[in-house]
């Protein structure tokens, strides 16, 4: 009885995770420029992976509590993979956004762009060379 209940919870977590991952794909297709696409591609996949990894962790926990030591491997390794995703995904997004802005992509329909006035390292070096 409890076993079937945990099965149903695992399926619900999988469904939520898959829904957010598909949302990321639709967002990548619909949004107009690089920055808004990064919003969709970073947030939705990270949130979806929390639920998908959570279902695998729940499966391993049930195995562990029922007395199979192999369940501990599932729990710990999936937890480490989840931490890796949570650390690397937003950092990669910063790097891509900064690279896009420095290579000259402007945000579409921007109300305000304060970053435009900031001197980049290259232009600062040129200014010093001119002096």
């Amino acid at each position: 009885m409890l076993n079937q209940l945990i099965d149903i919870v695992i399926y619900i977590l999988l469904a939520i995770g898959v829904f957010f991952n598909i949302l990321a794909g639709i967002g990548l297709l619909r949004f107009p420029d690089v920055y808004t696409r990064l919003h969709a591609g970073t947030k939705c996949t990270t949130f979806g992976s929390i639920f998908l990894c959570g279902s695998v962790i729940l499966y391993g926990l049930r195995m562990w509590i029922l007395g199979n030591v192999d369940g501990s491997i599932w729990v710990i390794h999936t937890g480490i993979a989840l931490v890796a995703i949570l650390l690397t995904n937003p950092t990669g997004a910063h790097a891509l956004a900064r690279a896009a802005h420095r290579s000259g992509v402007k945000p579409v329909g921007a109300v305000i762009d304060e970053l435009e006035n900031k001197p980049t390292k290259k232009s600062a070096n040129k200014m010093e060379a001119k002096k």
């Binding site: 990548l28 690089v34 696409r37 591609g41 970073t42 998908l52 990894c53 995703i85 992509v105």
Partner: peptide, 19 residues
Amino acid sequence: PDRIVGLDTINTIVIVSMI
């Protein structure tokens, strides 16, 4: 940069589908 955003998203989804 658009293409690289697509590749980054593919990487995350591939990690999750491996698990």
